[in-house]
């Protein structure tokens, strides 16, 4: 193996500094006592306190979480179905159009998706609010879910399912007892991806929301357009903390599962 050169060490250090310093600065300044964001005036947690009393932000956060949970669950079911269709269903009428509709939303500019959905909702006379945001989010997230799940399905050994069928399972039982447990990690990461995409979305939510429902990104956007504020820094810090905790936990859990599986396989190999 080649020695890890100075050049490589430098590019990694600078690269990660570029990625992380902006967020670290943001976090540090969320504890700033001064209202002026660029002048350090001592440590304080008062912005967190003010945030907790800001009804508008709390309401928006609640709407955002509701939309994210419901839309990502719908997206997971539909996306998994679509993945099975893409990988397993073989030829059927309109297959090209179907796979086109799965991949197109992934590269579609959000402004276009948002605009087109808004025009649809107005066209059919639907009031804009939580329901329309949820439908919009479920639609674009299901495409991400189906990409994640179908990549797992492709590498899946079909003979396992055939064995279950030979042993007397019905098609549905074979799916529930064999296929689903094997693709479960992909389905879960699809759900998580859909959930964060929904939490994060500003553009599509702005087009499809009405006066009755405001999501957190919409609230944040209208606040930061006026400039940097310590309250938003505090809110961002909380969100960064939750995500970091989630990602690290998920990666530790999946690492432990991998280790356990390896151990089981080794044990099984010893027994034979």
């Amino acid at each position: 193996m080649r020695r890890f050169s100075w050049f490589n060490a430098t590019s990694l250090t600078l690269g990660f500094a570029f990625l992380y310093v902006p967020m670290i600065i943001l976090i540090i300044y969320s504890f700033n006592a001064s209202k002026l964001v660029t002048v350090w005036a001592g440590f304080s947690t008062k912005w967190y306190g003010e945030l907790m009393q800001n009804e508008a932000f709390l309401d928006a956060a609640w709407v955002t979480i509701k939309v994210a949970v419901i839309s990502s669950s719908i997206a997971t079911v539909l996306g998994t179905m679509a993945a099975i269709v893409l990988v397993r269903a073989g030829r059927f009428h309109g297959r090209t159009l179907f796979s086109g509709m799965i991949y197109a939303p992934l590269v579609m500019p959000e402004v276009i998706t948002g605009l087109s959905l808004l025009l649809l909702f107005i066209g059919i006379g639907m009031d804009r609010g939580i329901v329309t945001i949820t439908l919009a989010h479920a639609t674009f997230s299901m495409c991400y879910v189906s990409v994640v799940v179908s990549s797992r399905l492709i590498s899946f050994d079909r003979s396992l399912e055939e064995a279950a069928l030979d042993l007397g399972c019905s098609q549905f039982e074979a799916f529930r007892l064999v296929t689903l447990p094997i693709i479960a990690p992909a389905v879960i990461s699809g759900w998580l991806l859909a959930f964060t995409l929904s939490l994060d979305d500003l553009v599509i939510a702005s087009f499809t929301s009405g006066p009755s429902a405001t999501t957190l990104p919409i609230k944040i956007y209208s606040a930061v357009r006026l400039g940097v504020s310590p309250e938003i820094n505090a809110l961002s810090t909380i969100m960064i903390a939750i995500v970091t905790f989630g990602v690290i936990t998920a990666s530790l859990v999946s690492k432990r599962n991998a280790v356990n599986r390896q151990r089981e396989e080794q044990a099984a190999a010893r027994m034979t």
Binding site: L12, D200, L202, V228
Partner: peptide
């Protein structure tokens, strides 16, 4: 694996917040 996670972590963090971080800088 650690390097990989450090690259992916910002991707899970809100896009809006990452852009906002640069406003102050």
């Amino acid at each position: 694996p650690t390097l990989m996670m450090l690259i992916i972590l910002p991707f899970w963090t809100s896009f809006l917040i990452r852009v906002y971080a640069w406003m102050g800088i």
